[in-house]
Design a protein around this nucleic acid. Sequence first.
DNA 1: AACGCTATCAACCGCCTTTGC
DNA 2: GGCAAAGGCGGTTGATAGCGT
Length: 259
Amino acid sequence: MKMVQDQEQIRKGPWTEQEDFQLVCFVGLFGDRRWDFIAKVSGLNRTGKSCRLRWVNYLHPDLKRGKMTPQEERLVLELHSKWGNRWSRIARKLPGRTDNEIKNYWRTHMRKKAQEKKRAMSPSSSSSNCSSSSNITTTEGGESFYDTGGKKPKASSGGKKTGGGDEVKEHEKREQREYSLDDIWKDINLPEVSSIVPVYDGNLSSCPLMASPRPWEYCSDSLWKMDLEEESKNMFLPTPSGDHQFLSCYEYGKASLTG
DNA sequence: AACGCTATCAACCGCCTTTGC
DNA sequence: GGCAAAGGCGGTTGATAGCGT
């Protein structure tokens, strides 16, 4: 056994605001493709996959939030009847929605349907109107697909807490969740970089790092093959103070933008 | 007020596909 | 064409908020 560097330890579990911020920043710089690279140079100690997932499912600026509209619900039903569990494919037809979201929605939806069905099957119940459920038949065995058998009682796998705001009220927590992302995008619009692009007004395109000619679009692929990794590593040396990492990031972003 | 159950969401895992060498 | 690495996808799990008893 030898001393394992902190960097070698892959972090798991919920993302902190700081990590989110960091990820957004790096995606802004390098684009949303090179996840392994981003994972490495960002110093997040996450896997590329994890970074991608976080971005796609939560941080992506084009994401819609909130409940599915009836139209969306209908579309999901329709598309699912066509394509089955091709969540990502379905998601592509619903701008702003992620496959994960749709998947979750579907599971919930199906569970409800299943319960209705069961009730309908029970002798005393009147004929149900699973009218639209006919298109759900893809999953007639379906019940099993969403029936995960419930949760197993398991010792809580500690370390899952994000470390921030343990005592926040549930409502606040919820808000915090929604806020935090907003916050990130707002924060990105630091005055320091606002000289590059005007104030972030809630519109993604005004976000400095996501502004239309994105940094990575300036550079050909080969450019990134330089010793960027090394450089970035140096830039993002984990500092106890934390905040300065981001400033470095902005500086770097600025440099990329301005040449 | 306390407890239990359900719904919802975020995240991980493993497999498959794509891409680069 | 074969191999390895990275990315993408679908399935599953775990935590927690919300609601009913």
